[in-house]
Each structure stands twice: as C-alpha cells, then as structure tokens.
Amino acid sequence: MTRGLVALAIVALFAVPWLVTNTFFMHLAIMVLMWTALGAAWNLLGGFAGQVSFGHAAFLGVGAYATMIFHLKLGLAPWYGLVLGGVIGALVSLPIGFICFRLRGPYFSLATLAVAEIIRIIAINWETLTDGPVGMLITTLPELRVLGQPVDWESKTPFYVMIATIVVAVIGATWAITRLRFGAYLLAIREDPDSAEAVGIDTVRTNVTALALSAFFTALTGGFYAIYFRYIDPDAVFSIALSVEMVFIAVVGGLATAAGPLIGAVFLVTLAEVFRERFQVWHLIFYGLFMMLTIRYLPEGIWGRIGLLLGRRG
C-alpha cells in the first residue's frame, strides 16, 4: 500500500504544473521544492549522522557558480553545468570533510561555518573566475528541445519539472539509505562515535561519504538556483543565513526522516513567501521563533512527531 501511495504522490507532484496556472502559486511550489531539496540534502548529514553543518551554503554556492561559470565562460548549457556542479560540490566536500570530521559536536559546526566563510571570501575576491561582488547574470537561457518541442523558459513549468526531479532524487536517496547498512551506520555515529568505531564502523569514511552525497545534492540544487533566478552573487549564495535556513527546514520538519524536509519546507517557505509580499524580514523572525519552539517542544520535528504518533520507527 505504501508503494502505491508513493507512486500516487509522485504522479501528483508532476501533475501540479498542468493543474495550477497561477504564477504566484507556481513560484511558491518551486520555492517549496527547492528548499525541500536543500533541507533533505542537509538532513543526510545533519539528521542521520548528527553532524550539524552550519556551512552548507558553501556547496549551494559552488553548484550555482559552477553552473554559471561553465555557461558564461565555456558556453556549456546550464543543465549540463548543473550536473557537473553537483559533482564539483561533492569533490569540494572531500577535503572539507577530512579536515572538519576530526572535530566533534559543536566544534564540527564551528569549523563548517569557518570553511563556508573562507569560500565566500575567496568567491568575492577571485574576480577572474567569479566576476567578484557584482555577481553573474544569464540574460537568456539557451534553446532546449524536449521531444521535439522547444522549452518555454517564460513559463514556470520547466523549472518546476527540474526541481521536482531533484526532490524525487534526494528523497529517494534518503529513503534508500534508511534501508541500507549505510543508513544504520550513520545513526550509530550520531548516537555515539566511540561505540560506532567499536563495532567496526569507519566513522571518518562513513561521515565523508554522507557529506559528499549531501554536498552533491546541495550543489545540484545550487545549480538550479542559478538557472531559476539567472543571477547570483557571493553574498546571496554563500551567506551564513542560507546555511542556517537549510538547518531549520530539516529540524522543523524532522531530523533523520525522509519526508520531514518536505513538511518543513511546505510550512516555513509558504510562511516566508506569504510574508515576503508584505515585509521582507517577517519570515526570518518567524523562522527564528519556530526554530526555538521546535527545539523546545518538538525536538523530533513535525514529521518525526507524526511518525511517533503513528507508532512507526524512523
């Protein structure tokens, strides 16, 4: 039955653009899905392995910049750049992982924050590569034909399909991991790194693998960010606030759950987009407030609590 429900959900997900015509709602749906992907990618490392990264904007930025640079400087179509950007994000995460995973708990979190800041400062100053603080802009997206039909970049539909595909991939990967030995190993590391080593788990390699996966999906979504907004600058895509928002989506939705980030994103992003119309900062005030309320009264998150109420594990 679960399998049927999941299939139905995926069909419904891809049917949305053909049912909804309102541009605001389409934009809202795209934002919800983008933050779902980011929250779910963060959750792979932060939720399952319990390694709270405050620096995931680094990977989003690397993905976004890779996509832009490949397109603007090398003429590569951005949808290829997006995939390449994901791979580059994963590669960048490897040295970061080997450095930061020598630290535990809050020290790891502080180290990721420092690494992200270092990358942001480099992005601002390495002007030959990134054009510096002025940022990078795609004026028009190149022509693309799918099944012989030209894609209409003025419509929201192609972007929706892109991000929905990424979301299905991240949540699918998360779900698969919960079934594998790898997923169990991540939880073991979260619970007690010493004991994890004692049962033969290579904690550094397992953590680095989780980080690389997480970074891959974050950078992939960063590539989407670049294509969708067509403009990026270092302070927009490398900001600490962006990293923190990813954390919040996952925590409010439910740490170490496959569907939690979707719930967190529906909840927080809808709030954000509704408030953004009136006043920019209200949504962040509420993000902060909900974060505090969640940690205090609902540490397992919304989806985690639903799971507990239904008496299911994970």
Partner: peptide, 11 residues
C-alpha cells in the same frame, strides 16, 4: 566494551 557504558541510546 566500555567502562562507562556507551550504548546507542536512542536505538
């Protein structure tokens, strides 16, 4: 085993 027990507490 550990002198001060270290089970995976939530599992």
């Amino acid at each position: 085993t550990f002198q001060i027990v270290k089970p995976f507490r939530k599992l």
